[in-house]
Amino acid sequence: MIEANHIGVRKSGRWILRKARVQVRAGELVALIGANGAGKSTLLKAVAGEVTPDEGAVSINSKILADWPAAGLAKVRAVLSQSVQLPFSMPVIDLVEMGRYPYQGQEPGGRTREIARLCLKQVGLSGYDDRDICTLSGGEQQRAQLARVLAQVYREQPAEERFLLLDEPTASQDIAQKQQLLSLLRKLANEAGLGILTILHDLNLAMQYADRVVLLRRGHLLKSGSPETVLTPEGIAQGFGLKARVVRTPGEALPHILTCPTAVDLFQNEETAIP
């Protein structure tokens, strides 16, 4: 389990995140939402270990982040940043294989390739092995990167809980691909038992796929819980300064969120100072 408690991060003397808290269990999909500048990425980076919090601590599988050896940590959690640019062209399969770095020397090269193919298949890029990564569309590139991080935590007989930390993985996907991607993440959580913490912008996707939603506002944790309890008109108004309706359609289990044209207070997010 990932546990981040009381996380505070300071940047140039100002708190940009304070008293944030998030938990991710194996097999769980947790969506991190909030307006731009709310501290989502900072929290994700703190959990990933890129940013060392000035307050609080993150532990994975009951071990404090600082105590994890780099290679061991890489085997239990993989991180996908928002946009990863490659300076050189290379075949897709090579990119995915690079995710297996932590297992280098521990598995035969043929096995690495098999795993890479498997992961490509999971993100819907079967047969793309030899395609030049630079000739792929933005969405395809993003999925190829996802295949790489999948490969990083792929294990046949997992001995420990494994996690994926994703920063807006649906960026540059079309509407159908967004659904496909989220259902893939759902499947990975359910079947492979991966714990997934992902930043999402689309509130409906969070509503439909997440087990839990963590809503941040101006560096603070506003609400955390099941999608239906967090993504209420009040929650959305507080978190985004946006008027929204939550609509239930007969025959569907989950409600839909409709955002309204009038803003509650469009600029309230500008004040980012935290008491």
Partner: peptide, 20 residues
Amino acid sequence: SSQLDLLLLGEREAAYTGVN
């Protein structure tokens, strides 16, 4: 070699993948 490969993705990604 492998570390350099991963550095192609950027320092952050390389570090996430376990590269010192």
